[in-house]
Amino acid sequence: MVEVTPVSKPGPVFSRTRRVKFWRYVPLMVLAILGFGFPFYWIIMGSLSSNTAISTGSIPLFPISPHWANYRNAWLYTNFARQVLNTLVMSVAVTVAQVITSSMAGFALARIRFPGRQALFVGFVATLIIPFQVIALPIFVLMANLHWINTFGALIVPTAVNAFGIFLYRQFFLTIPEALEEASMLDGANPWQVLWRVYWPLARPATVTLSLLTFIAEWNSFYLPFLFTETKTMYTVQLGLVAFQGEFATVYNLLMAATVFISIPVFILYLLGQRAIVEGIATTGTKG
């Protein structure tokens, strides 16, 4: 989590003002935690409920007799294993591609002075504003003409570059002292070697942040795979989830179980890279 300098300095533990503040704000916090967190608890309760409890809407507030079999059934009823594999291939490939294209472009924009540098940077960043839906139709036509629909090419190549990544690496490379580059150049290294051997290892925080955010975005992405896939064998997990809803519309216990296991990888990544994720989001706000 972001380290935050407290706005009001903590006073003596039992001071009057501190107690007033405690009673003024802590109930609000509890309310917010319940409001934002309860749906998660309820989804898990739903995923462990029996068919009867789900259909009559009488979900117990505590898991009295959890139906763990729901998870096994939800997994087996569809082709989730295949969809998880598809999604992993797509997410890893896009993440690697974005790290490579972004670090190269970010390096050139930060460390080499050439005409049109600023315009090019603006040209990249402008892509962040336009909704994907605006350009989705022409990309669909392009994919259809290339016969890439329903292949990994369509899932990976259109998102292989990300202006946010370019921005992130550029900001990072700008903070590295020039002397380092000059020293390595004097050692006879060419810019390619300088980038990958000197700069890229130093930019590890940017790489971690971009990788985590991209992987999560790809894992959760819906519109692009929705347009560019046709058969269930190419479905990603999010499409699988929608197909599941189509087939088992009101079997909510199984649907909630599927929702839970599909979200687990994202939460694991968040727990591992909490700091990088939150800082990555915060960076776009403070340095944008």
Partner: peptide
């Protein structure tokens, strides 16, 4: 941002919905 107990829990819990996909959240 206040130095009170529960603030880390508040941050984690209220950020959690952002992490799940719109598909999962929508279905739930």
């Amino acid at each position: 941002n206040r130095p009170l107990p529960l603030r880390n829990l508040l941050r984690g819990i209220s950020f959690a919905p952002y992490l799940v996909s719109f598909v999962s959240a929508g279905l739930a």
